[in-house]
Amino acid sequence: MRVQSLFLYPVKSLAGISVSSFMFDDFGPQGDRRWMIIDADRQFVTQRNRPELARVTTAIRNHCVTVSIPGEGEFSLRPTTIRDRVRVWQDWTIAAYGAVDASSALSRFCGADVQFVYMPDDSFRRVAADRVTDVRRVSFADGFPLLVTNQASLDELNRRLDNPVEMRRFRPNIVVAGADPWEEDHWRSLQVGDQQLSLVKPCSRCVMTTVDPATGMKAADLQPLRTLGQYRRTDDGVIFGKNAIHQSPGVISVGDPVINRTLE
């Protein structure tokens, strides 16, 4: 097995970027989902209720995150000194508000009052304690620093669909090639290059998988979620991919060997 592709998501629920390698820091992949969008009630905003966010692209230039908002232009995201508690799922955590220009442009695009916020180094959000006994932190990702998916599983799913979908529907960080379909169900520990990953839970999927990343529109037929639900439903929900945590700082790259350590 090997790493087929790697992705970063500088802003939660905006378009991700394909990268050739990334470095792990204390949060997870460096720069991954340190930015988020909130509404007027300080609640997180995602493609679940704003599918058009898929059309807002991101980039990292000179260690700065930029966003390109249709009809508005490109903006550099800059944290200010204004801080407040914001909510992502059940967690409240301290975040710094972004500069007004980008937030105002995104508000016009969405037709609603939204704000970019940033998770600073001194803000701590804990990975779910019922899954990971160590006190580990996570960024604004849904719950864990990493999502690992298997290309063969997507290929098998696509054989069941009238209209095949791309892996980016599932927003992974690491895509593995060379495994059997759904082999990831049995992975508990992977060595990726020199890095050790613990795969702590299956990833339950939601309506975001029905959003076309190119158009920002939800599929009227609810695919591929509907088909997944016919044969991939478990106590954890309709699953595709595995949530993971890394064990140490380091770098992984496309092409790195992937070894299943579960059976050793």
Rank of each mutant, 00 (worst) to 15 (best):
A95C: 10
N62M: 02
V251C: 08
M1W: 05
V165G: 07
G31P: 07
M217E: 15
E184Q: 01
P257H: 03
R42F: 13
V135E: 15
V148D: 04
H63C: 05
R48V: 06
M167N: 13
R83W: 04
D122F: 02
D155R: 10
S198H: 15
P51E: 07
D256Y: 01
D101M: 10
L190N: 06
A141N: 05
T227G: 08
M208P: 09
L222Y: 13
R48G: 09
T209D: 09
V3P: 04
N158Y: 07
R61T: 15
C64Q: 15
A179H: 08
F22M: 00
V56T: 00
L53E: 02
V135T: 14
W92G: 15
R159H: 03
P10H: 00
S21A: 14
S68F: 10
N173R: 06
R83D: 05
A141W: 02
V67W: 03
V56Y: 01
A102N: 07
I259P: 04
R42V: 10
R131L: 15
W182C: 11
N163V: 15
D122T: 01
Y231L: 09
S204W: 09
R87M: 10
Q195L: 09
F22V: 00
H246N: 08
A105M: 00
F116A: 10
I245A: 05
R137S: 12
E184N: 05
V100A: 15
D221Y: 03
V258S: 07
W187K: 04
S104V: 10
R126A: 12
I245V: 15
E74Y: 01
M167Q: 14
R126P: 07
I82L: 13
A96I: 12
V3Y: 00
N150Q: 04
D91G: 04
L146F: 07
D41E: 11
T133A: 11
V238Y: 02
G73I: 06
L147E: 03
L197V: 07
I259H: 11
V135Y: 12
I17L: 08
P257G: 08
R232G: 04
R87I: 10
T80C: 14
D32L: 03
E166I: 09
M208L: 13
S253G: 10
R233I: 11
V254I: 14
A244R: 12
P164Y: 09
D235G: 13
S76R: 15
D155P: 06
V127L: 06
G250I: 14
R48T: 05
P172C: 03
P79H: 05
D91V: 11
L228N: 04
R168W: 12
E183F: 09
P145N: 06
